[in-house]
Amino acid sequence: MTYIERYLNGETKEVYKEITDLGQEAFYADNFTQIDFVLQETFKRVAFNLNIIYQELKNIGYQFTSDIKYDWQQPLLPPDPNTEILLSELKSKIRERGHIPLSLEYFYKIVGSCNFCWDWGVSPVILWEGADPIDIPPIKDLLEMVYDDYDCEDILISGDYLQKDNVSGSCYNIELTATPAVDSLLHGWDIPFIEYLRLTFKNCGFTMADQCNYESLTSFCNTVKPKLKEI
């Protein structure tokens, strides 16, 4: 069976482990054709899951940003129509430091962006404090953080769970790789980006939900989880 056949058959983790083990061989033509299909399916599922979670959060009256002035404040945005151009510009700016992983590229091409953070400016009492809602900025905003002659070995993707709760914290940064890679580490979690997304959907959009003790969050996850697709 091919990678995509096995992935569709439920071997999601096993397929990605084998893809990772391929290293640079993942980019050989015969392998990459299959891997491209897997990545496309993965991020279609990511988009599907985010939409399900967004709708369910709206159903319970979750306080998303109410006074939206910038794209990064939007709970969900589809891919920017200029994504390919913006990705090329991003790659040009970081070329001396490394490569962004394909996982991040496909996120921007297929998913777009998301921000499920609570609007603590409007409602200071955060519904599920410490739950760490998913928050990945639009490609335009990511690009603005990458200056000319960029000299860092990673790129800031999101504030950590403390920043999201209006507490001084740190950041989640995605690692630039020395050679092209299908995926790379998300520093702050120290797991690959796709594994981070997998963990986040296991916790229904809130990466640390299983470390929190809120009956309403448990109830939310019990309602949402059966509707989500494995990635």
Results as ranks from 00 to 15, higher is better:
Phe116His: 02
Met145Phe: 12
Val111Asn: 02
Ile94Asn: 05
Leu142Thr: 12
Asp151His: 11
Pro192Cys: 00
Leu39Met: 13
Asn51Trp: 03
Pro101His: 04
Ser170Leu: 10
Leu217Thr: 12
Glu89Trp: 00
Ala29Met: 14
Ile60Trp: 04
Asp36Tyr: 13
Glu11Gly: 08
Lys93Cys: 09
Tyr54Leu: 05
Trp118Phe: 08
Tyr108Thr: 04
Leu57Ile: 04
Trp128Gly: 07
Gly121Phe: 08
Lys227Leu: 15
Met208Gln: 14
Glu5Cys: 07
Val122Phe: 12
Leu8Gly: 07
Cys171Pro: 01
Tyr70Asp: 15
Phe48Val: 05
Thr33Met: 10
Cys114Met: 09
Asn49Cys: 05
Tyr147Gln: 15
Pro81Ala: 05
Asp71Phe: 05
Gly169Ala: 06
Thr218Arg: 06
Trp128Leu: 09
Val146Trp: 04
Lys58Trp: 02
Pro75Arg: 00
Asp183Phe: 04
Ile68Gly: 10
Phe116Pro: 00
Ile174His: 01
Met145Lys: 15
Asp71Gly: 10
Gln24Thr: 06
Asn222Cys: 11
Asp30Ser: 13
Phe107Gln: 00
Tyr70Met: 09
Phe193Val: 01
Ser158Thr: 11
Gly121Ser: 09
Asp210Lys: 11
Ser123Phe: 14
Pro75Lys: 01
Asp135Gln: 14
Ile94Thr: 08
Asn49Ala: 05
Thr223His: 14
Leu102Thr: 03
Arg198Val: 03
Asp148Ala: 14
Leu87Tyr: 07
